[in-house]
Design a protein around this nucleic acid. Structure first.
Length: 344
DNA sequence: AACACGGGGAG
DNA sequence: CTCCCAGTGTT
């Protein structure tokens, strides 16, 4: 029996995954490069994000910010603009800070060591393992949701993936099947997980390792992975005023706490004198992972120049053109609201 | 150790 | 509707 350097009897499994990957790898823009900058960006973009959902954002981002230096020198708001609609906006803030870290702490040269990559803002164990293995021959498994699913099924292992020790636990399982080429192995696991070993209706008949898959042999695929923790969404009610005059409207930038970090929004209140200018209101419901958001937006058409100027003087709102609003990063529901207002 | 953080697509 | 996705930071 062949053994790999962990002493396990599963070397052939890793090799079958690599062979499958050579013939079935998805043709993705970041598959033709080992530029650590591009691999890093793609790892961040695709955190908790399907490939189809983030592909345009990735391509646009790389086109505008082709290297670390360009990104580090950009304004944070422009980085956020390229992240608009992707969600988890702290990723954009951190990716920008990390670029500046690389300029300041590593003379602009992307660090090659796992431990150094891990120090970058927004880079955790998964991303550090992925970048170091794909670009620098590192040997850490890039344990993500795909690893949890593939390995829990392969070993029919009921370890709870919502347990905070799951990353370490499945890293050890991964080491049992990990071949010499860890970079390709990590990418092979991602593709197997998304194309074959899918959450629902997996294509076990086409799986290159189905002969050794215990859950498959037991017809218990749907029992894995085990995940006990359920997220409950709470209600969140927001009120906004779309205060506009002469094709312009008022906005302000959110803080870096709570939801929609650093994105722009409308005023949450108006003065009493403004109330007569409210023409209508609209309630939008929007689902976030942890919140059911209900947004009531009042349309305020300020026909009085005096009141418009007074309101702006009394508050620190920014004035922006409705036509040019695509140059700011708004939360998705507000983005949609602005787009609809353009049609009127 | 537990929780917050977006948005979209599949079933 | 529910689940889950190339996870990380904070408390």
């Amino acid at each position: 029996m062949e053994k790999n350097n962990t002493g396990s009897d599963f070397l052939h499994v890793g090799n079958r995954l690599l062979e499958w990957y050579r013939n079935n790898a998805r043709d993705l823009p970041f598959r033709q490069t080992k530029d650590p900058y591009k691999i890093w960006i793609c790892e961040i973009v695709f955190q908790q994000t399907r490939i189809n959902q983030g592909l345009n954002h990735y391509n646009n981002f790389i086109k505008r910010f082709p290297d670390v230096k360009t990104l580090a020198e950009a304004e944070e708001n422009e980085v956020l603009l390229y992240w608009k609609g992707l969600g988890y906006y702290s990723r954009a803030i951190n990716i920008h800070k990390a670029a500046q870290q690389i300029m300041n702490d590593y003379q602009g040269v992307f660090p090659a060591q796992y431990e150094e990559i891990l120090k970058l803002k927004g880079v955790g164990k998964y991303t550090a393992a992925a970048v170091s293995s794909i670009c620098f021959g590192g040997r850490m498994p890039a344990v993500d949701g795909n690893f949890y699913r593939v390995l829990s099924r392969f070993f029919a292992d009921d370890f709870d993936i919502s347990n905070s020790r799951a990353f370490t636990y499945f890293s050890e399982l991964a080491a049992l099947v990990m071949p010499e080429n860890v970079g390709d192995f990590n990418q092979a696991m991602m593709d197997i997980g998304s194309e074959i070993c899918k959450p629902k209706n997996p294509l076990c008949g086409e799986c290159p390792i189905n002969e050794d898959c215990i859950a498959f042999s037991l017809q218990k695929i749907s029992d894995y992975p085990v995940k006990t923790k359920k997220v409950k969404a709470e209600d969140l009610a927001l009120t906004y005023y779309f205060v506009h005059r002469n094709e312009q409207f008022l906005i302000r930038q959110r803080g870096d706490d709570f939801i929609w970090k650093k994105l722009f929004e409308f005023p949450s209140s108006i003065s009493e004198e403004m109330e007569p200018f409210i023409t209508n209101s609209k309630t939008i419901t929007h689902k976030l992972t942890h919140k059911n958001v209900s947004i009531e937006i009042f349309n305020v058409n300020v026909t009085s120049e005096t009141l418009w100027n007074d309101f702006i003087a009394e508050n620190q709102y920014e004035i922006t053109d409705i036509q040019g609003s695509h140059e700011k990063s708004f939360p998705k529901p507000l983005e949609n609201y602005i787009q609809n207002s353009l049609k009127d």
